[in-house]
């Protein structure tokens, strides 16, 4: 924590070495988080870079990270992904149910064998932002529940419930209990 605060202090002075360290330390984590929520590889690279660009822009703004770089970056990554889907949904909105119907996918077999990434991403995109955020930190980055709770400033019990509801909801969407009705 002390190290991170010191790093943040140097980053505020635009110390190139500190900024390079921050990029090196967190790029992979943010990339994994974003790739968990967005399927297209080029888009993932762009959105990950966007997170770091916003970090830089924030350093002299009132929304600059105060105590934790990691928490700020994950929060911003969530926002960037959300904005991306908002823009994308304005461009083309294809509900999961239509995709499943169009592809003639047998949902039962799907659950037994392999869940295609595309379907999973689409199903994920229909979850609430908090649910996606929790799943991305838990399974995209592999963060422990207590760290997710700290990052989101919620209790561990709340995160567990969010996670359980998210997975239940995913299960319903993928198994067709909600779609194609």
């Amino acid at each position: 924590m002390q190290d991170e605060l010191a790093l943040l202090g140097r980053a505020r002075a635009f110390d190139q070495e500190a900024l390079g360290q921050i990029h090196d330390l967190y790029y992979d984590a943010i990339f994994r988080y974003v790739s968990f929520r967005v399927g297209n590889a080029q888009t993932v690279e762009d959105l990950t870079s966007e997170v770091f660009t916003r970090f830089l822009s924030s350093l002299n703004e009132r929304n600059a990270p105060q105590n934790t770089i990691q928490g700020w970056l994950f929060g911003t990554a969530s926002r960037v992904v959300k904005e991306y889907y908002r823009r994308a949904s304005r461009a083309q909105l294809v509900p999961l149910s239509e995709t499943i119907a169009a592809k003639g996918i047998d949902i039962d077999d799907k659950l037994q064998a392999d869940l295609e990434k595309q379907l999973l991403h689409q199903a994920m995109a229909e979850l609430t932002d908090d649910q996606q955020h929790v799943l991305a930190m838990r399974f995209g980055y592999g963060m422990a529940i207590r760290d997710v709770a700290k990052n989101m400033n919620k209790s561990e019990a709340s995160i567990k419930m969010l996670q359980a509801r998210a997975i239940a909801s995913l299960g319903r969407k993928l198994s067709g209990m909600e779609v194609g009705q």
Binding site: F31, E45, L135, F139, G171
Partner: peptide, 28 residues
Amino acid sequence: TLAIVDSLSQLASRPYVSAKQASRQAFL
């Protein structure tokens, strides 16, 4: 449920080194 959890744990990908370097250079 466990099948979904397993799929979720394999959903994220890792960055290419070249992409990371390009991002770092642009960032700095």
